[in-house]
Amino acid sequence: MRPFKFTNTSNASSAINLLIKNPNAKFLAGGTNLLDLMKEDVERPDELIDLGRLDLTAVRPLVTGNNVVGISIGGLGKNTDAANHPLIRKDYPLLTKAILAGASAQIRNMATNGGNLLQRTRCSYFYDIAMPCNKRLPGTGCSAMQGINRMHAIFGWSDSCIAVYPSDMAVALSALNASVKVMQPSGTARIIAIHDFHRLPGNHPEKDNNLDHGELITAIEIPKNKFAANSAYIKVRDRNSYAFALVSVAAGLELAGGKIISASIAMGGVAHKPWRATHAENILRGKMATVENFQMAADAEMEDARPLAHNKFKIGMGKKTIVYALEQAFKGTGYKA
C-alpha cells in the first residue's frame, strides 16, 4: 500500500468537505474491496477518510405522509445487518437472499451497503498492474478482450472494456427498483435510480458509476413491492459458496392466481452493471406463470447477448437461470427443492 493520510470524522458534511479538498482522497467504509485493491497497487489514494463513525447505519421504513412506501437502508450499515433486519427479511427477502449469496459471513460483517454498490470488477487483467487495462489505465487497451474471458460480460460491453460488476446485492436492488440517495458537496440530497447509478463501459470504463467525487451514499431506498412471497435469488458459481457469480438472477413475480401481473428480473455476472431483464419482464406481463412462458421470456432476454470466446456458455446458463429463478419465485419464497 502507498502511504496515505488517515483522517477521522464523525459527520457526513465534514467527511465530504475533507474529500473535495483532495482529489486523491477516498472514503473508507468497510474496506473489503478498497484495501484489497490498495494492496494490489490498483487503487492509490493518498488519503483515506474513515466513515466508520458516521451515523448512517439505520434501517427504517420510508414514510410519505402516513403511508409506509418502502424502506431505507443506511449507506454505512453493514451488509449482515441489512440482510437480517426483520423488516427486510419479511418484506424484501430477495435482498436478504442476494446479500447472503455474496462473499462470506466475515466480509458481510465488514462490508457496508453503500460500499457494496461501489465494488470494482474482479477482472483479473484489471487487478494485475503489469497488464494493459482501460479501466485501470485508460487508453492502454483491454487485455481481456482476446484473453481469458470466461467470467466476462455478454451484455452491454464495449470495445474498451468487457468487465462485469460483481455485486449480488445490487442485482436484487435492481429488481427491487431501488434508488441510491447521495449527499452532494452542497449538502443537498440527490436521488439516483439504481438503473442510472452504474454505467455501461462505453468509452469510459474507468468510471464504474455516476457518483461524483465528493458525493456520499447516505442511504438506499427501496419502494414497496408486491412479490415478497414470490421472489428468488439464484446464483451460479464455480463453487457452492464464497465465489463470484458466473450468472445470477433476481426475480420477483407479482401474481394473481396463476397469472403474472408483473415480473421483476435482474441479472448479475453478465454486464458492467446489474442487467435489468426488461425484455423478459415485458413478455411475462399478463401471461400465465408457466414454464413455457418463463422459457419464452428467457429466450427473448438472451437474444441480444454477445458472448466472447470463453463465455458462450453464459447464454444457455443465463436462460436456464432465469427460468429456474422464475420457477422458484412462483413456488414461493419458503419453497426449497
Binding site: 426483520p86 436478504t96 447472503l100 459458496s241 419464497t333
Partner: peptide, 13 residues
C-alpha cells in the same frame, strides 16, 4: 437467529 443463503425461508424470523 441470523439467516444464511441456505436458510429455507428467510421470511421466517
Amino acid at each position: 437467529g441470523q439467516a444464511s443463503f441456505v436458510t429455507a425461508d428467510v421470511r421466517q424470523n
